[in-house]
């Protein structure tokens, strides 16, 4: 698969249809996000699999946004998995990226990764190489729903109280880009002390991500306290789906129900 990906990138770069490609590289014995440009050696390109597949994923769309903000007129390629593509659709919708300035280079995820992520759609619409696996049901959410209210409540409060307020969940998130972050709004979350205000901090973020989170799981992987954030956001996404029939990033052109005024639309 990787050879096909390299070929594709090489094609894009040498024909000049993109200025650069955001992907991953192996350097200094580690995996890092990287911008490949014309003439760069593609030998060190990698897909972010080290010990397990997808265990060294990075928020490449975030990197793309950083670069595109400085170079708004250029077209860039970007390596995407299913979640990254959902992210691109979301970022188009939220006016953070322009669709005609982005060339996604899609790869599907293997079954093991799809299982670990409990991913609804472990492949992008456009695939350069590799074999698709179908989506997986949200067992984690269901299991949690089956517990009684007080068990759930104390589970989450215990988890939240481990928070060390690193803001890593926000900083790593490819869908977080607000200049003024609600987590830093003192009317919502008090500052200056640990443990952070719970559950306000975590629920504020969950609400704010409700129509944006594309379930990539990077936040949970970045959490130093191993708080199961992804599960929380999966549940939020499920509510969005049952109430509004909306799933972030699944349809390229769908508007978010949260950006519409008035009563909830008919299901």
């Amino acid at each position: 698969m990787i050879d096909r990906v390299k070929e594709k990138i090489n094609e894009l770069l040498s024909e000049g249809s993109v200025k650069g490609v955001v992907a991953l590289v192996t350097a200094n014995g580690h995996v890092a996000p990287c911008l490949f440009q014309k003439g760069d050696d593609l030998d060190t390109l990698c897909l972010g699999d080290t010990e397990k597949s997808g265990d060294a994923r990075y928020p490449l769309n975030r990197v793309l946004c950083t670069i595109a903000r400085q170079y708004p007129d250029d077209v860039f390629g970007v390596l995407v998995r299913g979640c990254d593509e959902r992210g691109l659709y979301g970022l188009y919708r939220l006016n953070q990226l322009e669709p005609d300035k982005v060339v996604p280079i899609g790869i599907p995820c293997p079954e093991s990764l799809a299982q670990a992520c409990e991913c609804k759609k472990p492949y992008p619409d456009d695939i350069v190489a590799g074999e698709k696996f179908e989506g997986i049901s949200q067992q984690g959410v269901e299991d949690m729903d089956n517990k009684d209210l007080s068990t759930r409540f104390s589970f989450w409060m215990d988890q939240f109280s481990k928070c060390v307020k690193c803001y890593g969940c926000r900083n790593i998130c490819p869908m977080c880009f607000c200049r003024e972050c609600s987590l830093e709004c003192e009317d919502l979350v008090s500052k200056g002390d640990l443990p952070v205000d719970i559950p306000v901090f975590h629920l504020t973020r969950a609400m704010h991500m409700a129509d944006r989170c594309i379930d990539c799981g990077l936040c949970e992987e970045a959490c130093p306290s191993d708080i199961p954030l992804r599960l929380l956001y999966k549940k939020t996404a499920e509510i969005m789906n049952t109430e509004f029939g909306f799933t972030s990033g699944i349809n390229k052109n769908e508007k978010s129900p949260l950006s519409l005024m008035g009563p909830a639309p008919e299901k």
């Binding site: 481990k162 060390v164 690193c166 640990l194 443990p195 130093p224 306290s225 191993d226």
Partner: peptide
């Protein structure tokens, strides 16, 4: 630990888990 060495606290939380 959680304040001064947060990434050591990570391991301690895991030990509890």
């Amino acid at each position: 630990t959680a304040t001064s060495h947060p990434l050591v606290a990570t391991r301690i939380f895991r030990a509890i888990e």
